[in-house]
Design a protein around this nucleic acid. Sequence first.
DNA 1: CTGGGGACGGGGCCC
DNA 2: TGGGCCCCGTCCCCA
Length: 272
Amino acid sequence: MPRSFLVKKYFSNKKPYYRESQLESQTAFVPESFPRAELPTQNNSSALTCYPASPLFSSMDTLPAPLSPVTPVSLPPSPLGPLDLSSSPFSSSGEEEEDGGRTSDPPSPDVIQHIYHCLHCSKSYNSLSALSHHQTSHHQFSHGTALQQTPSLPTEASARPAFHCKHCPKEYTSLGALKMHIRSHTLPCVCPTCGKAFSRPWLLRGHIRTHTGERPFACQHCNRAFADRSNLRAHLQTHSEVKKYQCGSCSRTFSRMSLLHKHNASGCCPAS
DNA sequence: CTGGGGACGGGGCCC
DNA sequence: TGGGCCCCGTCCCCA
């Protein structure tokens, strides 16, 4: 089960897998559908090239105190109006970095959109007033019901803000989560050896181990060592009599979820 | 086909 | 608030 607690996934869960052939073509691992995720290439020859403070996020860091979408008063048309992410280096021209202070450019509400969801139904609105207007219909309706556990009058607190990613359909309940997610599109951390880009520095460090051969995670039970802690954890399962993932039908255990899935797919548990 | 390893993505937690 | 790390998970490859 994915641990995507905060994200709604509307499309395939298939994750990008970067083949060796893609590594050879350094542009291949930047999905073309995300044109902003262009790799900074000029500094690739430097030691460890990572751009955690890319102008994109600098822009986001300079956000005014986040205007809560549930603020009951004077909600601007775009809660993130001053935010201009279009001036990121991932836009068509990095020269537009200097554009950060310009006010002529409209904000980019398509980068981060605040959507006000009705808690009573699935409808969404881009303004609190529209949501409030809509929710009056629920208010009127609830008067005729016996439901008393929730306030019949819609409150601002019931308007749940959502932060939408421009690059994909995902939405998040916090700006921080969205910013973290956006890194998976911008891929600011670039391997100096092969040019492969990663969303986070520690992912890059793990990748660099594939070049250096470093394996800091040693198994206590055998002489194997791993570059990745998760792989060590999976390996430790092989030393266990009773493995972590158990078939619900035959009680057979497996070291990995994927093996259990394969087992189920093979027909042991057709019902489940 | 199965089991295991390699590589990596991503959200949550902690500092 | 952001970075580092943890944990869980997936996908692919190979023996």
